[in-house]
Design a protein around this nucleic acid. Structure first.
Lengths: 133, 133
DNA sequence: CTAAAGCCTGGAGTACACTCCAAGGTCAAG
DNA sequence: CTTGACCTTGGAGTGTACTCCAGGCTTTAG
């Protein structure tokens, strides 16, 4: 599989794929002509990378996770550990966001969210204060 | 209030405060000697900025939100609209994260999350495939 | 055989949000 | 009157994750 195919199969630009290679996330064999040659599984690996990014992992973190995975004596245990760690991150973010949502809902739940505090001649800074969550 | 005081009161570095000024987020009057002079409300405004950043708004977005706020004919309606927009963003992120959490929990819920698929000689790419959420 | 499409490399550029620095002005304490 | 803390400016540097480009091979289609 050449880089262009992988790019369209994964939805990740050729330039990004080469960038990932420099970052150590994605290896490629080379054909005689020097072209990169990817195994079919690379698509899945990129899917994983994308997901991890969505979860807020940096490429560096993803890379070291993959490296740990490669060298783990018990790969299944390693994967379970990674999943558990991911789950923790996700749940922490969920909590934070839920707290923010509740704050917002409280303020919107009032008939007029600012009526109790607002006076005439409200300054921008005052308005901002009322916006602070 | 001078920049150093505001920095320690808000937990934002002096350099960042000057950066925010260049970005149009934070104005300051000047004293005779040229020193920046901030009103006490600046602390609250920075609190709002921090919160908005946590919510994933870029400084540019935050700046234009503040500008809209400043010029809104009905400031209360404008704030309500901003809060509602924020709430939408937060809820969308909550949904995405919840979906990811469910995926992770499903995989972890199995006695061994990979037992059904794993065989001998599992390659890194295969392992990654199983990690794809 | 030629043209187009695809690949290679190294390096520059971009956007974001800082962060640090040099060179210098201001001010209060000792 | 000096020392040290604090302030000013402009500009350079950092890290992340790309994105684009020039210059030059290789391959494929007609």
């Amino acid at each position: 599989m050449r880089i262009g195919e992988l790019a369209s199969a994964s939805g990740i630009s050729r330039d990004s794929l080469r960038f990932y290679e420099r970052a150590g996330l994605l290896q490629a064999r080379r054909q005689q002509n020097g072209y990169r040659d990817y195994p079919a599984e690379a698509v899945q690996l990129l899917l994983y990378i994308k997901t991890a990014q969505k979860l807020g992992f940096s490429l560096a973190e993803i890379g070291s996770n993959l490296a740990r995975l490669r060298t783990a004596p018990d790969q299944e245990a390693a994967i379970t550990a990674l999943l558990a760690a991911k789950l923790q991150v996700v749940e922490q973010r969920l909590d934070e966001l839920a707290a923010l949502r509740n704050e917002l809902q409280n303020r919107l739940g009032q008939v007029c969210p600012l009526r109790l505090q607002a006076g005439p001649g409200t300054s921008p800074a005052e308005a901002a204060r009322k916006l602070s969550v």
